[in-house]
Design a binder for these strands. Structure first.
Ligand SMILES: [Mn+2]
Ligand SMILES: [Mn+2]
Ligand SMILES: [Zn+2]
Ligand SMILES: [Zn+2]
Lengths: 137, 137
DNA sequence: ATTCTAAATGATATTCATTATTATTTAAGA
DNA sequence: TCTTAAATAATAATGAATATCATTTAGAAT
């Protein structure tokens, strides 16, 4: 069994493949996208298992759940980063800026009565693809 | 009829009350909270109307939809601001920092192939109330 | 290696937030 | 006041997410 962490849980094939998929796939897949991806290796996996494990592994800290426009997505990128979100197509890209992260956390230190442990900035706008689609047809 | 905007739409009592509620209520109410609030004035309003109008008015730019932990919430605070989100109870407070907003937007200008028009930072941690609850019982 | 068992899975049913439908009502312009 | 497209209320339908439960399995004990 590959060692994928030290959490107190069974390392089932289903969990290993879900985590592997999210580590390889550098996007922010939905439940269905994870399900379709993992099914290529584990053809008999149940969607209920995918749901349960995505939630479970997020609680264990092995994945992160993100939510955009009412759509639940998952990722395994634990390098602090921000997001570029397209208002048109809903695409969500990572955007890394240690500079912004440090600045934000410094400001956060001054907030009273709220212990902050993490932060993330969402930038909203129109992606390159959608801009081109608007210009053309 | 109170003038609540110039958008191309009918200013029904239902819409007027929904917007009024969200402008008075300085939180981030859920659909049910808006429904309960508005029902005090319009006892016969349908929940489907609340759903439709919250979505409709957000698209018209008169409200904003925010999503935390899979829960959809609404607000009418158009002063650019950030959010403090409690990991424990899910509470979402506003946090205004023009300094952080300006800094973030300046960084955003350098991003290629993505036209950014707005941004918001989410700070995650534990709120005062939940901290006290942990210490006590 | 074999046995054991709590935990996990697969299949399916259930829940419930959200959307669709449609007959009736109404805002707003003529 | 009349007209009518748009909006509402009531309700049905949809579908993402969760619950249930019989069966399987990871991992520990023997
Ligand atoms: Mn990301
Ligand atoms: Mn807010
Ligand atoms: Zn786009
Ligand atoms: Zn809290």
């Amino acid at each position: 069994m590959d060692n994928i962490g030290e959490a107190d849980m069974k390392y089932t094939n289903q969990r290993v493949e879900i985590i592997a998929f999210l580590r390889e796939h550098k996007g922010h897949p939905t439940v269905d996208e994870v399900y379709d991806g993992v099914r290529k290796k584990l053809t008999r996996i149940s969607k209920a298992t995918v749901y349960k494990n995505l939630k479970f592994l997020s609680q264990k800290g092995l994945l992160e759940e993100v939510n955009v426009k009412g759509v639940t997505r998952f990722e395994a990128n634990f390098v602090p980063h921000h997001h570029l979100i397209c208002r048109k197509c809903g695409k969500m890209d990572d955007f890394q800026s240690e500079e912004l992260f440090d600045y934000s956390m410094k400001i956060a230190e001054d907030i009273e009565g709220f212990s902050i442990d993490s932060m993330s900035t969402n930038f909203y706008g129109i992606c390159k693809q959608c801009k081109e689609d608007t210009i053309n047809g």
